[in-house]
Measured scan of single mutants.
Amino acid sequence: GGTTSGLGELPSGWEQRFTPEGRAYFVDHNTRTTTWVDPRRQQ
């Protein structure tokens, strides 16, 4: 941990993952979708 950059926890059902290249993306298990956009930035 320690790399949350002050955004806090992800919404319920979300998970942060990384591509083999090390790029972060976000998985929404509620809708079984993925996005490059941090859901915390859409609030």
Rank of each mutant, 00 (worst) to 15 (best):
T4K: 14
F26Y: 14
L7S: 10
R23L: 14
V37W: 10
N30Y: 07
G1K: 15
G6W: 08
W14E: 03
Q42L: 13
T19D: 15
D38K: 06
G13C: 04
Q16M: 12
G13M: 03
T33R: 05
R41L: 14
G1V: 12
T31W: 02
S5V: 10
Q16R: 10
W14G: 03
V37T: 09
N30V: 07
V27F: 13
E21Q: 10
G2P: 06
P20N: 15
G13K: 06
L10I: 07
T3W: 07
P20Q: 11
R32P: 02
G22L: 06
R40F: 01
W14F: 11
S12K: 10
R32L: 07
G6V: 12
Q16S: 08
F18R: 10
S5F: 05
V37D: 09
S5C: 13
T3P: 02
F18D: 13
W36R: 06
W36L: 07
Q43L: 15
W36K: 04
W36T: 05
G6S: 14
L10F: 11
T31I: 04
R23V: 13
F26K: 01
E15W: 00
T3H: 10
G2S: 14
R41I: 09
L10P: 02
V27S: 03
L10G: 01
S5H: 12
E21F: 05
S12E: 11
T4D: 15
E9D: 13
T19R: 01
T34D: 01
H29W: 07
D28Y: 01
S12M: 10
R41Y: 11
G6D: 15
R17K: 15
H29N: 13
T33C: 13
A24N: 11
E21K: 07
R32W: 04
R17D: 06
G22W: 04
T33I: 15
E9C: 09
L10V: 04
E21H: 15
W14I: 07
G1M: 14
F26S: 01
D28T: 00
G1C: 15
G6P: 09
T34G: 01
D28S: 03
V37H: 13
T35L: 00
T33K: 07
E21W: 05
D28K: 01
E21P: 04
P39F: 00
R40C: 07
Q42R: 12
W36P: 04
G6I: 14
R41K: 14
G8M: 11
N30W: 04
S5T: 12
Y25R: 00
T4Q: 09
L7P: 10
F26A: 01
S12T: 06
R40Q: 05
R23P: 08
T35Y: 02
P20A: 12
W36G: 04
H29C: 05
L7N: 13
T3E: 13
T34M: 05
T3M: 12
G13F: 03
P20C: 08
G2Y: 10
E15P: 00
A24R: 11
T35I: 00
R17V: 13
G22Q: 07
T3Y: 10
E21N: 11
G13P: 01
S5W: 07
E9R: 05
T33Q: 09
R41P: 14
R40T: 06
T34H: 03
N30I: 10
E9H: 03
P39K: 00
R40D: 01
G8H: 12
S12W: 06
Q16F: 06
T35M: 03
R41V: 13
R32A: 07
H29L: 07
P20S: 14
T35W: 02
A24Y: 09
T33P: 00
E15N: 03
R23C: 14
F26I: 01
T35D: 02
R32Q: 12
S12C: 08
R32T: 06
D28M: 01
W36D: 07
L7Q: 11
L10Q: 04
V37F: 13
A24T: 12
E21S: 08
G13W: 03
Q42G: 13
V37P: 00
S5E: 15
N30A: 09
T34I: 01
Y25C: 03
G8C: 09
D38A: 06
G13R: 05
G8D: 13
P11H: 02
T34P: 01
R23T: 14
G22R: 07
A24E: 11
W36Q: 06
F18P: 02
R41G: 13
W14S: 02
V27W: 05
G8L: 09
G13E: 03
T31P: 00
T35V: 01
T4Y: 02
D38I: 02
T19E: 05
G13Q: 06
F26E: 02
P11M: 02
T35P: 00
R40A: 04
N30T: 09
Y25S: 01
F26H: 02
A24K: 12
L7T: 11
L7D: 13
D38Q: 05
V27Q: 06
Q42V: 12
R40E: 04
Q42M: 11
P39M: 00
E9W: 03
R40G: 06
R23S: 15
F18M: 14
S12F: 07
F18G: 06
E9M: 09
N30C: 07
W36I: 06
H29P: 02
E9T: 08
G1D: 13
T4N: 15
V27L: 13
Q43C: 03
Q42N: 13
T31M: 07
L7C: 13
T31S: 10
P11F: 00
N30R: 08
W36E: 06
T3R: 10
V27E: 05
R41T: 14
E21Y: 01
G6E: 14
Q16K: 13
E15T: 06
Q43A: 13
V37L: 11
D38P: 03
N30P: 02
Q42C: 14
E15I: 03
F18Q: 09
T31V: 04
H29V: 05
E15C: 04
S5D: 15
D38L: 02
R23Y: 14
